[in-house]
Each structure stands twice: as C-alpha cells, then as structure tokens.
Amino acid sequence: MCIVEFKNVSFKYSEYNIIDNLSIKFSKNRFEGILGQSGIGKTTLIKLILGMLKQDKGEIVRNFKRTGVMFQADTLIENLSVLKNMLYVTNDKRSAMKFLQMVGLNDFTHFKAKHLSKGMKKRVEIARALCIYPELVVMDEPFGNLDLLTKINLASKIKFHLNELETSFIYITHDIEEALTICDNITVFYEKPLNINFKRYIDVQHKNKSILSKEIKEFIIRTSNRYPDFKSNNIFF
C-alpha cells in the first residue's frame, strides 16, 4: 500500500521542464527518503505531493488527508510561546502536550519560540507536525542547519514512535549520509528534469543504471559499509 503515487507526472515552470514523466510510489508507514542535489526539483516534488502545485500531465494518487510538514527554514511564530505554536495547528491541548513531551520539551511550553535554540525549534516543529496525527509528514531538508548528531537524535525520536503513530514520512535531503542514516528507503534523483527514480535499498528500477554518477556509487558503497543495517539490502549497479 502506498501513501502517494505519481503516475507519469510532468510539471513545468513557464517553459522549463522540472519534472518529466515521473512515476514513483512512496510506501505507507515508512521513512521514505528523497535524495538529490540542490536545485534538482525536490521541493517542487513535495509541493506536488502536498497539492500546493498542480501537475501539467499525469496523475498523483494521494492516500492521505491530514498532512504535517517541516521545512529547512524555521517556521515557528517567533513571538508566540511553544504551546501557542502547537495550539496554532491543533485545538487538542492534550495532544500538543503529549508530543511536546515526546520531544522532551514539556518544560518549555511557556518559552517564546524566539528564545529557543535551533535544535529545540526543530523539536517543537516535529511535535507540531505530529500533534495533528497526520497520515503523512513531509520534511523538506528539515535539519539542514543542524549537526549530524542532532539530526540523528531528532530522527531517531521520530522513528522510535513510528509504529505507534501510523504515519508515513517523506524526507527530502541533499545529504547522502543523512539519508542513509535516517531513511528506510531512498529514492535518488540525479538528473534533471526529474524522470528517473532509483530505489536504492529495495531494488534498482532504472534500466540505465550506468548513468548513476561514479561519485554517488562510491559514496553509497563506502557509507553502506559503515552502516551494517543496510548491508542486508541488495545494491545493484
């Protein structure tokens, strides 16, 4: 069962092709990663997923209603308290408190967002994204400005509650190491317009595997050796 499915989707900004005939599926209750260099169209992809943009061709099947979101930029309202930032998106105070507790910020509810550190802000954003019990959470380079250790800590907090939450995650990043550390599946976008998908850990779906750049191949192999969990999955090039 997939949470989102793209069927031959194309999208243009004016005459410029951003996505061309893309077909891809994102599984339910998984941490799906989208990996690709900056400017390749990852953000456009999530805007299409969220329905903020309308595709020119093809079909997008969305099997979700409620969505949570996290961006790289801070999106808390700076002059509001942590709790009010939570209550901005939900009326359920109990749920807000539950998820603040989950991210370890239940003692900071009355702190204004502007007085929090970057890492704490991201934790509030995680809690805010989850407190509405979304079926899908889209994260667009959410921990971009943080160090890897903090990223892993934050991601592991989410993954720890993944089964309980019954939420699917789409995690977008340009950082290969981050994707390998955090995500269950990774789809690599490496050519523009986006028309190729490369399911790294499940199977390789693309016919012309040789076009995956040498650097990415080497990096994936090197990093996979450092992460034994991923070794069990077949990697084909």
């Binding site: 969220l50 903020m52 969505t67 949570g68 979101v69 961006f71 930029a73 801070d74 999106t75 309202i77 002059n79 509001l80 009010k84 901005y88 998106v89 509405i132």
Partner: peptide, 26 residues
C-alpha cells in the same frame, strides 16, 4: 509575513480566526 509560515499555515489548514489572532494581529 514569512512565506514559509504562510505555507505551513496552508498545509495545516489553520482556520482564519486563528490566523488573525496568532499571526496577523501580533
């Protein structure tokens, strides 16, 4: 107003009343 906050507001489908009191008036 920060475009990202507005996008988040749209995605979370925050009601207009809340936008007024949490975002616009402050």
């Amino acid at each position: 107003l920060d475009e990202n906050i507005l996008e988040v507001t749209e995605i979370f489908e925050v009601i207009y009343f809340k936008r007024v009191f949490y975002l616009y008036l402050p």
